[in-house]
């Protein structure tokens, strides 16, 4: 067992973890933050994406022990302080960027990282940045559109409701 202390969504948390405890297990099973999902075991689907020290990482491919001292943000920490949807979250709702909702937390976390790095991404840049996030429901159309809209770009020319 190793003791880790980290900040999760602004709150300091200490836990004893095994060496093989993944960050996602700490979040879901120990802390009860079940918004972060697990969709694969080969680090490709991205449903488990969280921010560690401000950068997107796959929490299924990082040990909890390595997050000692880190600032971690999960989907539960993404809404505005008053509980309303953030700009990115609101854009996903407005543009129907989610269906079953399972990949959605990872999509939102990745989108937030993209817009931090690249405030006005092109369609191509959005699609390329989503390489590590798989959605089975939407065909990505409305996810890409939502992210571009969240960046403040006019998406009205992009087809459909």
């Amino acid at each position: 067992m190793t003791k880790v202390t980290l900040t999760i969504n602004g709150k300091s948390v200490s836990r004893d973890v095994e060496g093989n405890t993944l960050l996602v297990s700490l979040l879901r099973d120990d802390i009860g933050l079940t918004g972060t999902h697990v969709g694969c075991d080969t680090s490709q689907c991205g449903a488990c994406t969280v921010h560690v020290n401000g950068e997107s990482v796959k929490s299924c491919t990082m040990f909890a022990a390595e997050a000692d001292g880190a600032e971690v943000t999960t989907i539960e920490g993404m809404a505005n302080a008053d509980g309303s949807l953030s700009v990115i979250q609101a854009a996903f709702q407005e543009h129907h960027g989610l269906q079953c909702g399972f990949c959605t937390p990872g999509m939102v976390m990745t989108a937030a990282n993209l817009l931090k790095e690249n405030p006005k991404p092109s369609e191509h840049e959005v699609r390329a940045y989503l390489e590590g996030n798989i959605c089975r429901c939407t065909g990505y159309h409305n996810i890409v559109k939502a992210i571009m809209a969240a960046s403040g770009q006019d998406v009205s020319a992009i087809a459909a409701e």
């Binding site: 933050l33 079940t34 989907i75 949807l85 996903f92 989610l98 909702g101 959605t104 937390p105 409701e161």
Partner: peptide
């Protein structure tokens, strides 16, 4: 009407409840 989906709010905030989330 293209009513926006009410279920989205819980999914977008990580508050959906899928089977594996239940403990």
């Amino acid at each position: 009407a293209s009513t926006r989906r009410r279920e989205d709010v819980r999914f977008l905030k990580g508050k959906g409840e899928y089977t594996d989330d239940i403990s």
